[in-house]
Computed example of a mutant assay.
Amino acid sequence: MATPLQPIIIVRKKKRGGHGHHGGAWKVAYADFVTAMMAFFMVMWLVATMPQEQLGGIADYFKNPSAVEGKSSSMAPGRAGPGGAGEAPIKMFDHARKPPDASPIRKPGAMDQQSGAAQKAGDEADRRKLEALKRALEEAVASSQALAPFKDQLLIDITPEGLRIQIVDAHNRPMFDLGSPTLKDYTREILSELAGYFEQVENRIAISGHTDTSPYTGRSGYSNWELSTERANAARRALVAGGLSEDKLSRVVGLSSSVPFDRNDPDSPVNRRISIVVLSNAAERSAARVDSGARVAQVGAKIAAP
């Protein structure tokens, strides 16, 4: 009996080529990702530094981006189709426009009013604190053995920036050596006494040095600008040595003779002075806004640079 033939099975294997080279496509995707992250952090930073009233205006805009307040449940047709651009420009910071009555979102105007009321209350408390410090300093000048002899040279007043204490020269009692940033011993003692009072409040300190209009002739390339700056810095060191914390300092500047105390007599000794300002909260906020605007301008200039 013949053996039945077995079917012949042919297995054909397909040869597959290796993966093609991806080239630089991943670099483009990675660059897009980095750009998006940079833009995200830039937006977050701008939002964090933007004034409250502008944030309220932007929030108001996104609640109703039309030029007029809508009352229909369906989108109104526009020149670009339903939901397209309106017929008039959008006012992003129009706080007079109210959101629909049915909206559960709190009105930005109310939030701004609450924030403004809290800020006003804080500024009022800050003003009372500075006035109390002024009275304490005046009492100390009248009774302290270290300060009483200099009561005519310690000028204390309240300014829009805060509580200002000016230490001025007298005809026979200068605060510094002639034409030098070196403090007299009694000036160092005065600053040491003042440091204890400044440390009692949370407000930061600004120090400025001033000279009269007499030109400095001590050495070439050195003027009243350098002298006033070094005197302000010498006062800073004396305050810190007297117990003032370094982080309480806001700025130390030299103004030469640009801001005279006695405008009628530019060479008067009172124009040679050190001015110390215990900054108010309002002055700190104003300085912060100026600094924030300067930083935004610098970032914009770097982005626009080729």
Rank of each mutant, 00 (worst) to 15 (best):
1 M>L: 12
3 T>R: 12
5 L>C: 12
5 L>V: 15
7 P>Y: 03
7 P>D: 07
10 I>Y: 09
11 V>I: 14
16 R>P: 05
17 G>C: 09
22 H>I: 13
24 G>N: 14
24 G>Q: 13
26 W>T: 10
27 K>I: 12
33 F>H: 13
35 T>S: 14
36 A>Q: 10
40 F>H: 14
44 M>N: 11
50 M>Y: 03
52 Q>L: 15
53 E>D: 15
54 Q>E: 15
54 Q>H: 14
56 G>W: 01
56 G>Y: 01
57 G>A: 05
58 I>R: 04
62 F>E: 06
63 K>A: 12
66 S>F: 07
69 E>A: 15
72 S>C: 09
73 S>Y: 12
78 G>D: 02
79 R>I: 14
86 G>V: 01
86 G>S: 07
87 E>T: 12
90 I>Q: 10
91 K>H: 13
91 K>Y: 11
92 M>C: 10
102 A>K: 10
103 S>E: 10
105 I>L: 11
108 P>K: 01
111 M>A: 14
111 M>N: 08
112 D>W: 07
113 Q>K: 13
115 S>Q: 15
116 G>K: 05
117 A>P: 03
121 A>K: 10
122 G>N: 11
132 A>L: 10
133 L>Y: 00
133 L>R: 03
134 K>M: 11
135 R>E: 15
136 A>C: 08
136 A>K: 15
140 A>H: 01
141 V>D: 01
142 A>L: 10
147 L>E: 03
147 L>P: 00
148 A>Y: 09
149 P>R: 01
153 Q>M: 06
154 L>F: 05
158 I>N: 02
159 T>H: 06
159 T>C: 07
163 L>R: 01
166 Q>G: 06
170 A>M: 08
171 H>M: 15
172 N>E: 14
173 R>P: 02
175 M>V: 08
175 M>L: 15
177 D>Q: 13
177 D>I: 10
180 S>V: 04
180 S>R: 06
181 P>Y: 03
182 T>R: 11
182 T>D: 10
184 K>V: 08
185 D>E: 14
187 T>G: 00
187 T>S: 07
187 T>F: 00
187 T>I: 01
189 E>A: 11
193 E>T: 05
194 L>H: 00
194 L>Y: 00
198 F>I: 02
203 N>L: 03
205 I>L: 05
206 A>R: 00
206 A>E: 03
207 I>M: 04
207 I>R: 00
209 G>S: 03
212 D>H: 05
215 P>I: 05
221 G>K: 04
221 G>L: 05
223 S>E: 05
228 S>R: 02
230 E>T: 03
233 N>M: 07
236 R>M: 07
241 A>R: 09
241 A>I: 06
242 G>Q: 00
243 G>A: 06
244 L>E: 01
244 L>I: 04
245 S>H: 13
246 E>T: 12
248 K>T: 02
248 K>Q: 06
251 R>P: 03
252 V>D: 00
255 L>F: 06
256 S>H: 04
258 S>E: 11
259 V>D: 15
260 P>D: 04
261 F>E: 07
263 R>M: 09
265 D>F: 06
270 V>L: 06
273 R>V: 02
274 I>C: 03
275 S>W: 00
277 V>L: 02
281 N>F: 02
283 A>L: 01
283 A>H: 00
285 R>C: 06
285 R>N: 08
291 D>N: 13
300 G>S: 12
302 K>M: 14
303 I>D: 07
305 A>L: 12
